[in-house]
Design a protein around this nucleic acid. Sequence first.
DNA 1: GGTTCTTGTGCAACTAGTTGCATAATCCGT
DNA 2: ACGGATTATGCAACTAGTTGCACAAGAACC
Lengths: 186, 186
Amino acid sequence: MSLPHAILIALLERPSSGLELTRRFDRSIGYFWSATHQQIYRELGKLEAEGHIRALPAQQPARGQKKRYEVLPAGRAELGRWTAASQDPKPHRDAMLLRLRAAAVVGTAGLEADLRRHLDLHRLQLAEYQEIEKRDFPPGNDSAQARLQHLVLRAGIELETFWTQWLAEALAELPDAQPPVADDRP
Amino acid sequence: MSLPHAILIALLERPSSGLELTRRFDRSIGYFWSATHQQIYRELGKLEAEGHIRALPAQQPARGQKKRYEVLPAGRAELGRWTAASQDPKPHRDAMLLRLRAAAVVGTAGLEADLRRHLDLHRLQLAEYQEIEKRDFPPGNDSAQARLQHLVLRAGIELETFWTQWLAEALAELPDAQPPVADDRP
DNA sequence: GGTTCTTGTGCAACTAGTTGCATAATCCGT
DNA sequence: ACGGATTATGCAACTAGTTGCACAAGAACC
């Protein structure tokens, strides 16, 4: 039940319209809490009804018109409450690990292509994170806020690093597969 | 849509009743695909209706009676098909990362206790994985099946290792928190 | 020999997330 | 000005997962 809170964070960082939020969920926020535009619009409606956000006054509040939202004090309070509240870690579900375990029983036939594809996807994501790190977190900026944001980004970097290494190992385990192409970026 | 396949894997590894499956989902399989007993019973019903599994003939098929299931050829075929099919990686959602990002905006007050609690939980899980590794994968066993299973377990170990390190770093970032107690197991 | 505890099975309702489509406004070439 | 592409907003139906409870059978209590 965290989508509303993800939206509150995004809106606190910058008031936005539904579409702008959607774009930002495709980038930064979405890296660890993804959402589609349909979910976002639905949630914006609820958050407005609850008095946590409000639409900035616009010319005509009609369909197909941009509507920008900002967070109200009640919304900021709710976010603070949620952040501090104790929450159990959600159980993971990872289909690729499951498929490897299935492969131990029914064989590895047909797995190689998808392992390779996932490896490429994770390498791409890792490169994107490293790009962001270079751009937004040059050494020397040590404000508390920047350090926290950097910490979150580093989680992304380290997780993607893990997956690229693990998938490369998995490919090496396949009986008749070529070893994965080395990642020869600098 | 992978719960039915997780169940097929478990049943191929060993035919079981609903409750036995539930227990195994609390341990091994559940480490990367969790499920409650309600989900499992529902899915067993569907899998039986589809002809993927069948109940081993029992004395009285009454309520409150153990019923053991085994996988039929159609079920094994379906699992093979699913394992080889291309699947997009699911977008991640991690509430703790989201909370840290929220903390960058609304402050870190109240976070410390839960960070510490999660750190303990991950350390516990890591210890459990390492125990399993020591018990089930002594050096020298290099059958293809064992290597694949070990690979999956190592993913769990490395992910938990990452989280314990990351959470310790996060605690170190909190303004007025003590550093996390060192993990002084051997 | 009734009571309560534990084990095993299951339904129903709810919540969160996904997929597919609908609609309005605006921009842009002709 | 007209007609199609793009931008922006949104509803509805579906799927997957969670929560809460119900009920039957046997064990164990005493």
